[in-house]
Amino acid sequence: MTPALVVFDLDGTLLDTHADLVQSLNYTIAAIGLAPVGYDDLTHLVGQGAKVMIERACNLRGHRLSQEQIPALLDRFITHYTDNMPGHTLPYPGLVEAMDQLKSAGYTLAVCTNKLEGLARGLIGKLELTHYFNTITGGDTFTIRKPDAQHLLGTIERAGGDVRRTIMVGDSVNDILVARNAGVPSIAVPFGYSDVPVETLAPTRVITHFKELTPALVDELIGDFASAEPAAAAG
């Protein structure tokens, strides 16, 4: 039997990146004279990669970017963010212990994020976490990104997983939707960057700490999800 695959979102799920995202974003928009954003703004800005985050921050400050402005600002963000990795970013409490437990039990792990793949790989590498993951896919790995099912399905394929034995862990609507669109169960964490309570997104399960992410929970959710599919089809 193919080992169960646990796919993680990155920002706000695996890693608390808020301080460094805000710092690099403010450095970027300062180039066009805009006032800085704060952590409370972040939940409305993140989720679709750096380009969209910059555009949203500019809109928040009443500045509509022209297409000509975007490449230079994106380069400014990427350079600043890369040069300062890992900055203040840390794994969330209990994450490393949970991943160790899953790996020891024979489970496979992967990352599926809308962050640019190069930034995701660079950050994970700086934190010495790369060895945990069979694959890391970003918002530019494929021609689509979350919540499009193909982003998660492509990640599963690259990780050598089976969609019927996969679970998605995330903190926002894109993560819950991509799981639903791909036909896999989802686990939501409430400590990330969602702009609404994660319970309202109807994930399969909510956990409040990574100590709850055990092999037993993964097996339970995959098994329950598989059992519910025939009933749903019959209904």
Rank of each mutant, 00 (worst) to 15 (best):
V198E: 04
S172T: 13
Y81Q: 06
Q150P: 00
L152V: 08
H88D: 14
D171Y: 06
A233H: 10
Q67N: 14
G49W: 08
G87I: 07
M168Y: 07
G49R: 09
V196R: 14
H209Y: 08
S186V: 05
D162T: 08
G47A: 08
A233N: 02
T155H: 06
T208G: 07
A226L: 15
E199K: 06
R64S: 12
G62H: 13
L21D: 03
D40G: 05
R158L: 14
A35F: 01
A216K: 11
L74T: 09
T108L: 13
L127D: 08
K211I: 00
F225S: 15
N114C: 06
L74R: 14
V196E: 11
F210H: 12
G122R: 06
S186K: 02
T137L: 02
G154P: 05
L25E: 06
V163N: 00
G38R: 07
F225N: 11
V198A: 07
E212G: 04
I176W: 07
P203L: 03
P36I: 09
Q67H: 11
K146M: 03
C112G: 06
Q101D: 10
L73Q: 12
I70F: 05
G47E: 09
L201D: 00
E117T: 10
N84A: 12
V96W: 12
D9V: 05
A232V: 06
V169M: 04
G12S: 10
V173E: 13
L213W: 00
G62T: 13
L221R: 13
H151I: 06
R165C: 03
I29C: 03
T200C: 04
F8S: 02
E229W: 13
D83Q: 13
A233Y: 12
N134S: 14
A110K: 07
G125M: 04
T108Y: 09
E199G: 10
G33I: 02
P185Q: 01
T113S: 14
P215Y: 04
V196D: 03
Q23D: 15
H209M: 05
Q101S: 15
M1L: 02
Y132I: 01
L127N: 06
E55S: 11
R61D: 07
S66D: 15
M85T: 04
R64E: 13
Q23G: 00
P91S: 02
R145L: 00
L42A: 09
A57C: 12
L34M: 09
L65P: 10
D75I: 10
L201V: 02
P36C: 08
A188R: 01
R76V: 01
V7T: 07
N84C: 08
H18T: 11
Y92G: 01
A110P: 02
A31H: 14
A216L: 03
V196A: 12
N114E: 08
L60Q: 15
K126L: 05
D224Y: 06
L73A: 12
L14S: 07
T155N: 09
G161P: 10
P86H: 01
E199P: 01
F133S: 07
D162P: 08
H151S: 09
G125T: 10
I32G: 03
P190R: 03
D171Q: 03
L116W: 07
G139H: 02
A149H: 05
